[in-house]
Amino acid sequence: MENDKIVIIDARCFIVLEKIGALPLLNKLYLQVVTTTEIAAEYKEDLPTWITIQNVINRDLIKTFQNIVDLGESSAIALANEINHSFIVIDDLQARKFASSLGLNVKGTIGVLLEAKQNEVIQTIKPYLDKIQKTNFRISDYLIVKILESAGEI
């Protein structure tokens, strides 16, 4: 379990987890859940008190990263550059590739759900995938099969 880690969460992850009733999983899985003021504003809902909202110190880094990814992702990636021993949860493929190219540890919302299953925080991942499919978050049928296989559910 990554419960000794500080994780930085992008807005899309918050949105998806909230839509499927799984936002509390972050608090159960990780020591500290952090986001930026930009992401909190993008999320537009009140975040739980266990989520830390932190400003990025190097504002120029955000501006530089915005040439590649959007403001929220830029702020998350910039913050991940400032916090030691962290990883970042981003779902946008371009942003994930960019963050990885900077040497950051990256996972997506599905990776969080898989980790929850692997650490017995949830019993099965399939009900969460079923709920996700009812949102505007798209997962291919092929990927669903791979996720269920990884989770030992098929």
Rank of each mutant, 00 (worst) to 15 (best):
K28M: 11
I6W: 01
T49L: 07
Y128A: 03
R96I: 01
L104D: 12
H85R: 14
F65W: 06
R138W: 13
W50N: 12
V33N: 06
T36G: 01
K5Q: 13
K131Q: 15
R138E: 05
L114W: 10
A151H: 14
T35D: 04
D4W: 12
I83R: 02
Q94V: 15
A76F: 04
D70Q: 06
N119P: 09
L79Y: 07
F65Y: 15
I125C: 03
V121M: 13
F65C: 11
I110G: 04
I57M: 09
P24Y: 01
L47M: 04
V121C: 08
I53D: 06
E2R: 12
N27Y: 14
K107M: 15
D46P: 07
G103N: 06
L47R: 02
I147G: 00
Q66R: 15
I53M: 10
R138V: 10
L61N: 11
P48I: 04
C13W: 00
I57W: 09
D130W: 11
V112F: 06
K107S: 15
E82P: 07
K134E: 15
A76T: 08
I154V: 13
I122A: 01
S86G: 07
T36S: 01
K28V: 10
I125P: 08
L148Q: 00
K126D: 09
I39L: 12
L129T: 03
K117F: 05
S74I: 03
F137K: 01
T124L: 13
K28C: 13
E45L: 10
S74N: 05
Q118C: 08
R138P: 04
T35S: 06
F98W: 05
F87Y: 06
A80V: 12
E18H: 12
A41K: 13
V56Y: 07
I122F: 01
S86Y: 00
I132W: 09
L61H: 08
K146H: 10
L148M: 02
I68T: 13
A151R: 07
F98N: 10
F87G: 04
T36K: 00
A99C: 04
M1A: 12
I15F: 09
E73W: 02
L23Y: 13
C13G: 01
G103Y: 01
V33I: 10
